[in-house]
Design a protein around this nucleic acid. Structure first.
Lengths: 178, 178
DNA sequence: GTAGTGTTACTCGGATAAATATTGTCCGAGTGACATCGG
DNA sequence: CCGATGTCACTCGGACAATATTTATCCGAGTAACACTAC
Protein backbone atom coordinates (compact mmCIF):
# COMPACT_ATOMS: atom_id res chain seq x y z
CA UNK A 1 0.00 0.00 0.00
CA UNK A 2 2.37 2.63 -1.18
CA UNK A 3 2.06 5.02 -4.07
CA UNK A 4 5.12 5.92 -6.06
CA UNK A 5 6.63 9.32 -5.74
CA UNK A 6 5.85 10.06 -9.35
CA UNK A 7 2.16 10.44 -8.64
CA UNK A 8 2.69 13.62 -6.73
CA UNK A 9 4.90 15.01 -9.47
CA UNK A 10 2.44 14.04 -12.17
CA UNK A 11 -0.48 15.78 -10.50
CA UNK A 12 1.50 18.93 -9.84
CA UNK A 13 2.65 19.00 -13.44
CA UNK A 14 -0.87 18.52 -14.73
CA UNK A 15 -2.12 21.36 -12.56
CA UNK A 16 0.68 23.57 -13.80
CA UNK A 17 0.03 22.71 -17.41
CA UNK A 18 -3.62 23.59 -16.86
CA UNK A 19 -2.47 27.18 -16.40
CA UNK A 20 -0.76 27.58 -19.72
CA UNK A 21 -2.88 29.43 -22.24
CA UNK A 22 -4.35 28.04 -25.40
CA UNK A 23 -2.23 25.44 -27.09
CA UNK A 24 1.05 26.68 -25.71
CA UNK A 25 3.46 24.15 -24.33
CA UNK A 26 5.94 23.98 -21.47
CA UNK A 27 9.15 21.96 -21.61
CA UNK A 28 9.65 19.11 -19.23
CA UNK A 29 12.83 20.73 -17.99
CA UNK A 30 10.83 23.74 -16.84
CA UNK A 31 8.37 21.54 -14.98
CA UNK A 32 11.25 19.77 -13.29
CA UNK A 33 12.70 23.11 -12.25
CA UNK A 34 9.34 24.23 -10.92
CA UNK A 35 9.32 21.44 -8.37
CA UNK A 36 13.00 20.75 -7.85
CA UNK A 37 12.85 17.34 -9.50
CA UNK A 38 15.32 15.43 -11.59
CA UNK A 39 14.54 16.38 -15.21
CA UNK A 40 15.56 13.01 -16.57
CA UNK A 41 13.29 11.13 -14.27
CA UNK A 42 10.34 13.47 -14.59
CA UNK A 43 10.46 12.96 -18.34
CA UNK A 44 9.76 9.33 -17.73
CA UNK A 45 6.51 10.09 -15.95
CA UNK A 46 5.51 12.76 -18.45
CA UNK A 47 6.07 10.23 -21.17
CA UNK A 48 3.76 7.83 -19.37
CA UNK A 49 1.09 10.50 -19.15
CA UNK A 50 1.51 11.21 -22.84
CA UNK A 51 1.08 7.55 -23.66
CA UNK A 52 -2.11 7.57 -21.60
CA UNK A 53 -3.50 10.45 -23.67
CA UNK A 54 -3.52 12.81 -20.75
CA UNK A 55 -0.73 15.02 -22.06
CA UNK A 56 0.45 15.85 -25.52
CA UNK A 57 4.04 16.37 -26.48
CA UNK A 58 5.43 18.68 -29.15
CA UNK A 59 8.98 17.95 -30.24
CA UNK A 60 11.61 20.33 -31.44
CA UNK A 61 12.52 23.83 -30.31
CA UNK A 62 9.64 25.68 -28.67
CA UNK A 63 8.22 22.24 -27.99
CA UNK A 64 7.10 20.76 -24.73
CA UNK A 65 4.02 19.36 -23.06
CA UNK A 66 0.44 20.49 -22.76
CA UNK A 67 -2.82 18.94 -21.61
CA UNK A 68 -4.38 16.65 -24.17
CA UNK A 69 -7.87 17.83 -23.27
CA UNK A 70 -9.62 20.41 -21.12
CA UNK A 71 -8.69 20.37 -17.45
CA UNK A 72 -12.36 19.82 -16.66
CA UNK A 73 -12.11 16.45 -18.34
CA UNK A 74 -9.08 15.16 -16.47
CA UNK A 75 -9.54 13.64 -13.03
CA UNK A 76 -7.03 12.66 -10.40
CA UNK A 77 -8.04 9.08 -11.02
CA UNK A 78 -6.94 9.36 -14.63
CA UNK A 79 -3.51 10.49 -13.53
CA UNK A 80 -3.12 7.97 -10.73
CA UNK A 81 -4.14 5.07 -12.94
CA UNK A 82 -1.82 6.20 -15.69
CA UNK A 83 1.21 6.43 -13.43
CA UNK A 84 0.57 3.54 -11.07
CA UNK A 85 -1.11 1.17 -13.47
CA UNK A 86 -4.72 0.29 -14.01
CA UNK A 87 -4.78 -2.99 -12.17
CA UNK A 88 -6.26 -2.95 -8.68
CA UNK A 89 -4.00 -2.73 -5.67
CA UNK A 90 -5.35 -5.96 -4.24
CA UNK A 91 -5.03 -8.89 -6.58
CA UNK A 92 -6.74 -12.03 -5.43
CA UNK A 93 -4.40 -14.94 -5.92
CA UNK A 94 -7.19 -17.43 -5.26
CA UNK A 95 -5.10 -19.05 -2.60
CA UNK A 96 -8.29 -20.51 -1.20
CA UNK A 97 -7.95 -23.17 -3.89
CA UNK A 98 -4.44 -24.15 -2.94
CA UNK A 99 -5.38 -26.27 0.02
CA UNK A 100 -4.13 -29.83 0.48
CA UNK A 101 -7.43 -31.39 -0.58
CA UNK A 102 -8.38 -30.57 -4.14
CA UNK A 103 -12.00 -29.68 -4.74
CA UNK A 104 -13.72 -29.35 -8.05
CA UNK A 105 -13.47 -25.92 -9.59
CA UNK A 106 -17.24 -25.60 -9.52
CA UNK A 107 -16.94 -24.99 -5.77
CA UNK A 108 -15.24 -21.68 -6.46
CA UNK A 109 -17.56 -20.08 -8.95
CA UNK A 110 -18.77 -17.61 -6.34
CA UNK A 111 -16.24 -14.85 -5.94
CA UNK A 112 -13.96 -14.85 -2.95
CA UNK A 113 -15.55 -12.78 -0.19
CA UNK A 114 -12.22 -11.30 0.78
CA UNK A 115 -11.60 -10.18 -2.73
CA UNK A 116 -15.06 -8.67 -2.90
CA UNK A 117 -14.52 -6.65 0.25
CA UNK A 118 -11.15 -5.38 -0.88
CA UNK A 119 -12.53 -4.46 -4.27
CA UNK A 120 -15.38 -2.58 -2.72
CA UNK A 121 -12.94 -0.49 -0.73
CA UNK A 122 -10.89 0.17 -3.79
CA UNK A 123 -13.95 1.26 -5.73
CA UNK A 124 -14.61 3.79 -2.99
CA UNK A 125 -11.04 5.00 -3.31
CA UNK A 126 -11.25 5.40 -7.04
CA UNK A 127 -14.65 7.02 -6.88
CA UNK A 128 -13.27 9.67 -4.55
CA UNK A 129 -10.41 10.36 -6.94
CA UNK A 130 -12.71 10.41 -9.94
CA UNK A 131 -14.71 13.23 -8.39
CA UNK A 132 -11.77 15.60 -8.36
CA UNK A 133 -10.90 17.28 -11.64
CA UNK A 134 -7.66 19.02 -12.41
CA UNK A 135 -9.65 22.17 -12.99
CA UNK A 136 -10.94 21.90 -9.44
CA UNK A 137 -7.43 21.74 -8.10
CA UNK A 138 -6.46 24.86 -10.04
CA UNK A 139 -9.59 26.71 -8.97
CA UNK A 140 -9.07 25.84 -5.33
CA UNK A 141 -5.48 26.91 -5.51
CA UNK A 142 -6.40 30.21 -7.14
CA UNK A 143 -9.05 30.86 -4.51
CA UNK A 144 -7.34 29.71 -1.35
CA UNK A 145 -3.66 29.69 -2.14
CA UNK A 146 -1.25 32.21 -0.76
CA UNK A 147 -1.03 35.30 -3.04
CA UNK A 148 2.76 35.21 -3.05
CA UNK A 149 2.78 31.60 -4.15
CA UNK A 150 0.18 32.24 -6.83
CA UNK A 151 2.11 35.19 -8.16
CA UNK A 152 5.28 33.14 -8.35
CA UNK A 153 3.50 30.34 -10.15
CA UNK A 154 1.91 32.69 -12.68
CA UNK A 155 5.22 34.38 -13.34
CA UNK A 156 6.89 31.04 -13.82
CA UNK A 157 4.27 29.84 -16.25
CA UNK A 158 4.39 33.11 -18.14
CA UNK A 159 8.12 32.86 -18.45
CA UNK A 160 8.34 29.25 -19.59
CA UNK A 161 5.31 28.66 -21.76
CA UNK A 162 6.02 28.51 -25.48
CA UNK A 163 3.24 29.61 -27.82
CA UNK A 164 2.64 27.39 -30.83
CA UNK A 165 2.25 29.32 -34.02
CA UNK A 166 0.33 26.44 -35.56
CA UNK A 167 -2.43 28.12 -33.75
CA UNK A 168 -5.70 26.72 -34.97
CA UNK A 169 -7.04 23.73 -33.12
CA UNK A 170 -5.11 20.52 -32.75
CA UNK A 171 -2.71 18.90 -35.11
CA UNK A 172 -0.64 17.19 -32.50
CA UNK A 173 0.75 13.75 -32.61
CA UNK A 174 0.76 11.17 -29.92
CA UNK A 175 3.59 8.66 -29.95
CA UNK A 176 2.06 5.55 -28.50
CA UNK A 177 -1.35 4.17 -29.13
CA UNK A 178 -1.48 2.26 -25.82
CA UNK B 1 -0.51 1.52 -5.70
CA UNK B 2 0.15 -2.09 -5.06
CA UNK B 3 -0.59 -4.18 -2.03
CA UNK B 4 1.80 -6.89 -1.02
CA UNK B 5 0.86 -10.49 -1.47
CA UNK B 6 0.98 -11.01 2.25
CA UNK B 7 -2.24 -9.09 2.80
CA UNK B 8 -4.27 -11.77 1.12
CA UNK B 9 -2.57 -14.47 3.15
CA UNK B 10 -3.03 -12.56 6.39
CA UNK B 11 -6.74 -12.09 5.89
CA UNK B 12 -7.29 -15.70 4.95
CA UNK B 13 -5.35 -16.83 8.00
CA UNK B 14 -7.32 -14.54 10.27
CA UNK B 15 -10.57 -15.87 8.89
CA UNK B 16 -9.39 -19.43 9.40
CA UNK B 17 -8.26 -18.75 12.94
CA UNK B 18 -11.67 -17.28 13.64
CA UNK B 19 -13.05 -20.79 13.19
CA UNK B 20 -10.96 -22.48 15.84
CA UNK B 21 -12.86 -23.02 19.04
CA UNK B 22 -12.19 -21.39 22.38
CA UNK B 23 -8.55 -20.72 23.04
CA UNK B 24 -7.23 -23.47 20.82
CA UNK B 25 -4.38 -22.67 18.51
CA UNK B 26 -3.30 -23.66 15.04
CA UNK B 27 0.34 -23.92 13.96
CA UNK B 28 1.65 -21.63 11.27
CA UNK B 29 2.71 -24.65 9.25
CA UNK B 30 -0.90 -25.80 9.08
CA UNK B 31 -2.05 -22.38 7.89
CA UNK B 32 0.63 -22.43 5.21
CA UNK B 33 -0.54 -25.84 4.10
CA UNK B 34 -4.14 -24.68 4.01
CA UNK B 35 -3.32 -22.10 1.34
CA UNK B 36 -0.31 -23.64 -0.36
CA UNK B 37 2.06 -20.97 0.90
CA UNK B 38 5.68 -21.07 1.92
CA UNK B 39 5.66 -21.80 5.66
CA UNK B 40 8.81 -19.83 6.32
CA UNK B 41 7.47 -16.73 4.70
CA UNK B 42 3.99 -16.94 6.14
CA UNK B 43 5.54 -17.04 9.60
CA UNK B 44 6.92 -13.60 8.93
CA UNK B 45 3.48 -12.15 8.32
CA UNK B 46 1.96 -14.01 11.24
CA UNK B 47 4.70 -12.59 13.39
CA UNK B 48 3.81 -9.11 12.17
CA UNK B 49 0.18 -9.68 13.06
CA UNK B 50 1.22 -10.91 16.48
CA UNK B 51 3.29 -7.79 17.04
CA UNK B 52 0.23 -5.73 16.10
CA UNK B 53 -1.83 -7.49 18.78
CA UNK B 54 -4.14 -9.06 16.24
CA UNK B 55 -2.91 -12.60 16.81
CA UNK B 56 -1.43 -14.34 19.81
CA UNK B 57 1.26 -16.96 19.62
CA UNK B 58 1.78 -19.93 21.93
CA UNK B 59 5.20 -21.56 21.76
CA UNK B 60 6.15 -25.13 22.31
CA UNK B 61 4.45 -28.37 21.29
CA UNK B 62 0.71 -27.99 20.83
CA UNK B 63 1.43 -24.30 20.30
CA UNK B 64 0.46 -22.10 17.41
CA UNK B 65 -1.56 -18.99 16.70
CA UNK B 66 -4.99 -17.79 17.65
CA UNK B 67 -6.90 -14.52 17.43
CA UNK B 68 -5.94 -12.04 20.12
CA UNK B 69 -9.54 -10.88 20.49
CA UNK B 70 -13.01 -11.70 19.24
CA UNK B 71 -13.44 -11.80 15.48
CA UNK B 72 -16.11 -9.14 15.84
CA UNK B 73 -13.45 -6.74 17.01
CA UNK B 74 -10.99 -7.26 14.17
CA UNK B 75 -11.53 -5.38 10.92
CA UNK B 76 -9.91 -5.75 7.55
CA UNK B 77 -8.38 -2.34 8.11
CA UNK B 78 -6.60 -3.61 11.19
CA UNK B 79 -5.01 -6.38 9.19
CA UNK B 80 -4.12 -4.26 6.17
CA UNK B 81 -2.52 -1.57 8.29
CA UNK B 82 -0.58 -4.12 10.29
CA UNK B 83 0.86 -5.82 7.22
CA UNK B 84 1.32 -2.85 4.91
CA UNK B 85 2.18 -0.21 7.46
CA UNK B 86 0.14 2.53 8.99
CA UNK B 87 1.41 5.43 6.94
CA UNK B 88 -0.81 6.64 4.11
CA UNK B 89 -0.19 5.48 0.58
CA UNK B 90 0.22 9.01 -0.70
CA UNK B 91 2.89 10.96 1.10
CA UNK B 92 3.05 14.61 0.21
CA UNK B 93 6.66 15.57 -0.36
CA UNK B 94 5.78 19.26 -0.40
CA UNK B 95 7.45 19.62 -3.74
CA UNK B 96 5.45 22.79 -4.24
CA UNK B 97 8.11 24.47 -2.11
CA UNK B 98 11.02 23.31 -4.20
CA UNK B 99 10.62 25.86 -6.94
CA UNK B 100 13.47 28.06 -8.16
CA UNK B 101 12.22 31.12 -6.29
CA UNK B 102 12.16 30.69 -2.56
CA UNK B 103 9.11 32.01 -0.77
CA UNK B 104 8.66 32.42 2.92
CA UNK B 105 7.33 29.35 4.67
CA UNK B 106 4.29 31.31 5.79
CA UNK B 107 2.98 31.00 2.24
CA UNK B 108 2.57 27.26 2.73
CA UNK B 109 0.69 27.08 5.98
CA UNK B 110 -2.48 26.05 4.18
CA UNK B 111 -2.31 22.39 3.33
CA UNK B 112 -1.54 21.34 -0.21
CA UNK B 113 -4.80 20.86 -2.09
CA UNK B 114 -3.46 17.82 -3.89
CA UNK B 115 -2.53 16.20 -0.63
CA UNK B 116 -5.95 16.97 0.77
CA UNK B 117 -7.70 15.34 -2.17
CA UNK B 118 -5.54 12.24 -2.00
CA UNK B 119 -6.04 11.95 1.72
CA UNK B 120 -9.77 12.24 1.36
CA UNK B 121 -9.76 9.34 -1.07
CA UNK B 122 -7.62 7.30 1.24
CA UNK B 123 -9.94 7.99 4.14
CA UNK B 124 -12.78 6.60 2.04
CA UNK B 125 -10.69 3.52 1.34
CA UNK B 126 -9.90 2.92 4.96
CA UNK B 127 -13.46 3.60 6.05
CA UNK B 128 -14.69 0.90 3.68
CA UNK B 129 -12.19 -1.56 5.11
CA UNK B 130 -13.01 -0.60 8.68
CA UNK B 131 -16.63 -1.55 8.12
CA UNK B 132 -15.81 -5.17 7.40
CA UNK B 133 -15.09 -7.38 10.38
CA UNK B 134 -13.44 -10.75 10.26
CA UNK B 135 -16.59 -12.22 11.75
CA UNK B 136 -18.51 -10.84 8.75
CA UNK B 137 -16.19 -12.61 6.39
CA UNK B 138 -16.66 -15.90 8.21
CA UNK B 139 -20.43 -15.48 8.37
CA UNK B 140 -20.66 -14.67 4.68
CA UNK B 141 -18.52 -17.64 3.82
CA UNK B 142 -20.63 -19.94 5.98
CA UNK B 143 -23.82 -18.66 4.39
CA UNK B 144 -22.84 -18.36 0.74
CA UNK B 145 -19.80 -20.56 0.33
CA UNK B 146 -19.91 -23.84 -1.48
CA UNK B 147 -20.82 -26.71 0.89
CA UNK B 148 -17.92 -28.83 -0.30
CA UNK B 149 -15.46 -26.05 0.39
CA UNK B 150 -16.96 -25.35 3.81
CA UNK B 151 -16.80 -29.02 4.73
CA UNK B 152 -13.18 -29.21 3.72
CA UNK B 153 -12.34 -26.11 5.71
CA UNK B 154 -14.11 -27.37 8.80
CA UNK B 155 -12.38 -30.73 8.56
CA UNK B 156 -9.03 -29.05 8.16
CA UNK B 157 -9.58 -26.83 11.19
CA UNK B 158 -10.80 -29.76 13.23
CA UNK B 159 -7.75 -31.74 12.33
CA UNK B 160 -5.13 -29.09 13.01
CA UNK B 161 -6.40 -27.10 15.96
CA UNK B 162 -4.62 -27.79 19.23
CA UNK B 163 -6.63 -27.33 22.43
CA UNK B 164 -4.86 -25.54 25.25
CA UNK B 165 -5.30 -27.24 28.55
CA UNK B 166 -4.57 -23.98 30.35
CA UNK B 167 -8.19 -23.49 29.63
CA UNK B 168 -9.47 -20.65 31.75
CA UNK B 169 -9.30 -17.24 30.19
CA UNK B 170 -6.10 -15.74 28.92
CA UNK B 171 -2.61 -16.09 30.20
CA UNK B 172 -0.92 -15.63 26.89
CA UNK B 173 2.18 -13.68 26.24
CA UNK B 174 2.84 -11.30 23.42
CA UNK B 175 6.44 -11.00 22.33
CA UNK B 176 6.70 -7.44 21.13
CA UNK B 177 5.19 -4.38 22.62
CA UNK B 178 5.36 -2.50 19.32
C1' DG C 1 0.80 -46.12 41.80
C1' DT C 2 2.84 -41.53 42.05
C1' DA C 3 6.11 -37.82 41.87
C1' DG C 4 10.28 -36.11 40.04
C1' DT C 5 13.47 -35.58 36.25
C1' DG C 6 15.76 -35.65 31.86
C1' DT C 7 15.14 -35.97 27.05
C1' DT C 8 12.93 -34.87 22.92
C1' DA C 9 10.27 -33.02 19.40
C1' DC C 10 7.68 -29.32 18.19
C1' DT C 11 6.72 -24.41 18.14
C1' DC C 12 7.76 -19.46 17.05
C1' DG C 13 11.32 -15.70 16.26
C1' DG C 14 14.82 -13.13 14.13
C1' DA C 15 18.86 -12.85 11.07
C1' DT C 16 20.28 -13.68 6.35
C1' DA C 17 20.06 -14.08 1.02
C1' DA C 18 17.53 -13.79 -3.64
C1' DA C 19 14.21 -11.57 -6.64
C1' DT C 20 11.64 -7.86 -8.06
C1' DA C 21 10.04 -3.17 -8.53
C1' DT C 22 11.09 1.42 -8.22
C1' DT C 23 14.06 5.33 -8.83
C1' DG C 24 17.59 7.72 -11.24
C1' DT C 25 20.76 8.73 -15.30
C1' DC C 26 22.41 8.80 -19.81
C1' DC C 27 22.67 9.10 -24.81
C1' DG C 28 20.33 9.05 -29.36
C1' DA C 29 16.45 10.29 -32.89
C1' DG C 30 13.65 13.88 -34.50
C1' DT C 31 12.09 18.52 -35.43
C1' DG C 32 11.39 23.26 -35.97
C1' DA C 33 13.87 27.73 -35.49
C1' DC C 34 17.51 30.54 -37.07
C1' DA C 35 21.21 32.33 -39.81
C1' DT C 36 23.12 32.35 -44.17
C1' DC C 37 23.16 32.64 -49.02
C1' DG C 38 21.24 33.46 -53.52
C1' DG C 39 17.94 35.75 -56.48
C1' DC D 1 14.11 43.16 -50.00
C1' DC D 2 12.30 38.32 -50.25
C1' DG D 3 12.70 33.37 -50.52
C1' DA D 4 15.10 28.99 -50.29
C1' DT D 5 18.33 26.17 -47.88
C1' DG D 6 21.60 24.20 -44.69
C1' DT D 7 23.07 24.12 -39.97
C1' DC D 8 22.10 23.98 -35.32
C1' DA D 9 20.23 23.86 -30.84
C1' DC D 10 16.51 22.31 -28.34
C1' DT D 11 12.94 18.96 -27.58
C1' DC D 12 11.20 14.31 -26.33
C1' DG D 13 11.92 9.12 -26.31
C1' DG D 14 13.72 4.89 -25.02
C1' DA D 15 17.71 2.07 -23.34
C1' DC D 16 20.86 1.43 -19.40
C1' DA D 17 22.45 1.31 -14.05
C1' DA D 18 21.66 2.01 -8.83
C1' DT D 19 18.84 1.74 -5.08
C1' DA D 20 15.02 0.32 -2.18
C1' DT D 21 11.45 -2.76 -1.22
C1' DT D 22 9.43 -7.02 -1.22
C1' DT D 23 9.77 -11.95 -1.16
C1' DA D 24 11.81 -16.20 0.30
C1' DT D 25 14.78 -19.21 3.21
C1' DC D 26 17.39 -20.95 6.89
C1' DC D 27 18.96 -21.76 11.57
C1' DG D 28 18.59 -20.91 16.56
C1' DA D 29 16.00 -20.03 21.25
C1' DG D 30 12.35 -21.54 23.97
C1' DT D 31 8.76 -24.45 25.77
C1' DA D 32 5.70 -28.00 27.05
C1' DA D 33 4.79 -32.77 26.34
C1' DC D 34 6.44 -37.39 26.95
C1' DA D 35 9.05 -41.31 28.68
C1' DC D 36 11.76 -43.01 32.15
C1' DT D 37 13.39 -43.73 36.80
C1' DA D 38 13.14 -43.70 41.69
C1' DC D 39 10.33 -43.91 45.72
Amino acid sequence: MKLGEGVEAAIHCAATLASVEGNSTMPGAALAEAFGLSPSYLLKHLNTLTAARILESVPGPAGGYRLARAAERITLLDIVLAVEGREPAFRCGEIRRNGPVKIDASAYVRPCGINAAMMKAERAYRAALAEVKVSDMVATYAAEGDPRSIAATCAFVERHQRPQKSGSTKQIQNPKQM
